[in-house]
Amino acid sequence: MPLLRSHDAAAPPADERSPETLVAALRTAPSETARRSAALELGAMPDPASGVAAMALGECLGRETSPRVREAIVTALVGIGTEAAAGALAVHLHGEDAALRNDAIEGLRQIGAAAAPHVEQLLGSPDPDVRIFAINVLEAMRHASAAVWLRRVLAHDTEMNVGLAAVEAMAQVGGPEDVPCLRAFAARFADEPFVAFAVNEACRLVGAGAAT
């Protein structure tokens, strides 16, 4: 029979590396595989090293050019899952690199509740695009305060597109009690037919019929 039994398959487990060694590898290792490996190992660090790991991962995420290493860094931060890890991702929502922003949004969504303080802060950003990204995160987080924050956006945000992102998110996380807030938003942009359409659709989805 041409099949061989494989007794030599697995290598012995590698020695555990210190956070400092891993951070150095993540920053400077020439090989993509080595940087990926360092990132994923940092993500598996127990407390209290996870704080240092989160900071280093966040810093390296910004300058890393390999999509595979970036993905490993985001996976590591999601695995750490703390407020510090969320902060290391949140900062990249301000950047110009669309792929990196998308990675950060996905990571924040997966971190969930621990990302909430950063998301609330991002909702107050002077950059409307960042506020929209924050709403994109909020929509998937299923956080207890999600509807409260979305109501605030609908009531006060001056940018129509930010409000429309909030309408879309509210359609997912809101309930019939959010209809007055949605209607009030539509009234603020009464000259925009698409706003009326979006609000009507959201009201239907939250179970309260059309907001006419």
Binding site: L4, A9, A14
Partner: peptide, 26 residues
């Protein structure tokens, strides 16, 4: 027996990074 002997069975936890790293690029 010939077929049984052709498979190498071993424990693994896919969620354990150190465990999985023993099989890198194999």
């Amino acid at each position: 027996p010939d077929l049984r002997c052709s498979i190498d069975f071993s424990p693994i936890n896919i969620s354990d990074r150190r465990d999985m790293s023993r099989h890198d690029a194999m």
